[in-house]
Amino acid sequence: MRRAALAIEALAIGLLFWSFFSDARYALAGAALAALGAAAALGAFGQRRELPHFWLWFASILVYAFLYLPLAIVVIFSFNDSKLAAEWVGFTTSWYAKLLADVDMLAAARNSVLIALTASAVATVLGTMAGIAMHRYKPRLLPFMVLTPVAMPEILLGVSLLIFFLNTARPALALFGIEFDLGVLTVIIAHITFCIGFVAIIVRARLAGMDESIFEAARDLGATPWETFRRVTLPLIMPGVIAGALMAFTLSIDDFVITFFTSGVGTKTLPLEIYTMIKVAVTPEVNAVSTLLMLLTLGMIVVAGRVAPDVLRGK
């Protein structure tokens, strides 16, 4: 009976989802909620032994639906043949065609990829060094500088870098005759600053689980520090380094807040474009670009799962 209750719950959620695309929105949503209540009642009278964690399952299914249905709606509406996102009219791929012809959007996408590639490459090198240094030498100031940008609200890093770039770096570089303004470079620097921490945390966690004696063995066999690093340490931490790089790339290409403060007027990235589209004029193009962006991150996660499965477990 409890299994039947969960099945009814799933059907009710499906009905709720469907009600969203229909004219009889309120009637269907009401019916779905009633079915949900019926499922709960059915479960309450069911045998405890049949499914001991029934209520956990019941709540978790709702939460999983809460996590996925909104995104499913975005994807579905990206194929909707209507200028308004209110209801389903018919299937079209014209929003994707329009997107691929949108010059601003393509320029923003190019900027995003360029920034994410550069920032994640530099952050991976610096973050790996920071992770090793934190593990080996237990410095005092470094962990503070590495971990704080990860933990604090993004807006704080954004505005402090804005002041620094415009009020300190620009006049200082002007003394040497170098013209400096907000743009791609400042966004890259800002992204590196917060990505270092994520890479360092992953690399340090990888090192922490390792047997110290292998490094001692390498040293006893006459390896120089560089040889030890190159032929023992690096191969061992490589999955962590790659996972860190992928994480840095994803964080950089998705970042909105810090980019918003450090990009200046001329430079646009995909998240900035999406923000403008949402705020100024919502067109179904947003659905299309969102769907493509989702596919990209999904691809990254699949790759991450292949090279470093333990990162996905949140370890």
Binding site: P70, L71, V74, A85, P271, I278, M294
Partner: peptide, 20 residues
């Protein structure tokens, strides 16, 4: 399955609620 939606851009996730 919990982390996966989190990988989509946060503006996209906010926008989804705008439509809903």
């Amino acid at each position: 399955l919990v982390v996966l939606p989190f990988a989509s851009n946060f503006l996209v996730r906010v926008y989804a609620w705008m439509i809903i």
